[in-house]
């Protein structure tokens, strides 16, 4: 009896810890999307720029950010200011560095996805809009972007689902998100249970995301 009771208590404590960590995981997830999508659009624009220098720089950016581990980027963003400028940015900087590194990294992926979508648009759509008198901005926001969004949605969904799982990488900066807490609990309890519970959290989160994205995709399937 005593044993079961204790097991339940441990379980409840673990759940509470993970739930607290989950809030932080959600914050990393949400803020990364918030910053990386516009930044990705910007880099995509730069990548397609007619100005060679801009285009080359954006290419280099994409290539490096996609070609090196996100974990390494996290460490660089966090420790960089200290080793380069000898400045110490305090404890809050752990979280900020996480958001910066995640946003920079995901922007590179989004930039390439957006570029694929924009380049798949036929010239005729721009020309029809031009001849009808739409301005450049109107053409972009009314004609091109809505169609591009539909086209890139499957790839963007993939990235979003990966991002949910990638938030666990913030552990390397000891940000107290869910996975960090699961690790701590696991080693304290000498049990894999916290990991399994954490896995369940990630999975449920992604189930929900999948559900939402499917709905969005459906809402755009009125044309092909």
């Amino acid at each position: 009896m005593e044993g079961t009771n204790q097991a339940i208590q441990t379980m409840v404590a673990t759940l509470r810890q993970l739930t607290q960590g989950f809030g932080l995981s959600l914050a990393i997830f949400g803020l990364t999307l918030l910053f990386s999508i516009p930044l990705g659009l910007l880099i995509c624009k730069g990548r397609m720029s007619k100005i060679t220098v801009v285009s080359l720089l954006c290419r280099l950016y994409i290539s490096v950010l996609r070609g090196t581990p996100l974990m390494l980027q996290l460490l660089l963003v966090y420790f960089g200011p200290y080793y380069v400028f000898r400045v110490s940015l305090g404890n809050d900087y752990r979280f900020i560095a996480t958001i910066i590194a995640f946003s920079l990294n995901y922007a590179a992926y989004f930039a390439e996805i957006f570029r694929g979508g924009i380049q798949s648009m036929s010239k005729g759509q721009y020309e029809a809009a031009t001849v009808l008198g739409f301005s450049k901005a109107q053409t972009y926001f009314k004609i091109i972007l809505p169609q591009v969004i539909k086209r890139v949605l499957p790839s963007v969904s993939n990235e979003i689902i990966t991002l949910v799982k990638d938030t666990s990488l913030a552990q390397v900066l000891s940000v107290a998100e869910m996975f960090t807490r699961a690790s701590a609990a696991a080693s304290k309890q000498v049990s894999v249970m916290p990991f399994i519970v954490a896995g369940l959290f990630y999975y449920l989160m992604n189930l929900l995301i999948e559900f939402i994205l499917n709905r969005v995709e459906k809402s755009m399937s009125y044309y092909s």
């Binding site: 036929s122 005729g124 759509q125 029809a128 001849v131 008198g133």
Partner: peptide, 19 residues
């Protein structure tokens, strides 16, 4: 832009806006 409102163009492959 003003001149563009004075003519219309019909394309071989329509180029309607699918959305």
């Amino acid at each position: 832009r003003e001149i563009r409102s004075k003519f219309g163009l019909v394309f071989q492959n329509f180029n309607l806006f699918p959305h």
